[in-house]
Amino acid sequence: MKLSIASAFRKSVAAAAVAAVMAPLGALAWEPTKTVEFIVPAGTGGGADQMARMIQGIIQKNNLMNQSLVVINKSGGAGAEGFLDVKGSANNPHKIIISLSNLFTTPLATGVPFKWDDMTPVSMLALDEFVLWVNAKAPYDDVKGFLAAMAAAPADAPFKMGGTGSKQEDQIITAAIEQKTGKKFIYVPYKGGGDVAAQLVGGHVTASVNNPIEAVSQWRAGELKPLCVFDEQRLPYKEPVTAKMSWGDIPTCKEAGLDIEYLMLRGIFMPPKATKEQVEYFVNLFKKVRETPEWKEFMQKGAFNTTALTGPEYTAWLGKAAATHKTLMENAGFVAK
């Protein structure tokens, strides 16, 4: 606890100093004047929560902010609670939110009124990959074999796909595979990615589309095997993960004969009506975070796609992603009436 007290004291001294310097200069460059709340629209322990707390740790360790950053989970209604909170906090620059795909899926699936452009986009941090996993004991080793076995499965015992949540990213990919192949899965929703991976090891489901970090340990232990990655190109990580393979050796689904791409946004937003200076401050802050060795190591361990966008490119990406989600969700029949 000493750490935090000491740093709080240092920060208040620093804040006083900053205030003293800033006073005559006016609002030249904006800096937070009090604790910044970092909203996570998901529960504790999930992927978004991990990333948020990781960022909090990096900022604290490297002293990247003059004020403290506190992580707050608002997971109600598949994250709707968190997004609505930010949407309703116009003109409050001391609040940021990390998003996952539920930014696009929740309003469509539940009809709760919020959209990505209700908030101020700050910066994309990374994109999370999805990999098609099967049990290591499965008789097929590639997508072709998987699809053939799926087509040959009897109608009363179709393949079971385990995934996180309902009408969210995992089920969207499942629906996309169904549309491409014309065969149905039974989609079984679980609470978290770790549960899904364990259920796949235990043979309770046939396949999953876990994020790399959720299933990597089971892969290394020879209990699961990856078939393909839902990205347009292979992952850039060449370090061996198992004795024979690295992340880069997993073929893309497209080259393996299943033309589907899906990436999950890990990005930062601010409440509406944030000024240019305020957005700039956070853009710079996250730029510094991304340059730390801790962040780079985290990206590699989790085999993230490290694309990072800001400004108009980010906005354009969001617009495109929102449209894609709308089409995918409509085709799958996931949109609330």
Binding site: M1, S4, I5, A8, A15, T33, K34, T35, E37, S68, V70, I72
Partner: peptide, 20 residues
Amino acid sequence: FEVWFLVPLPKGPLETALGY
């Protein structure tokens, strides 16, 4: 809560005036 655990509780005008 505010200093050690960094858990913000509901605050009002007094705390705002004090800079929290």
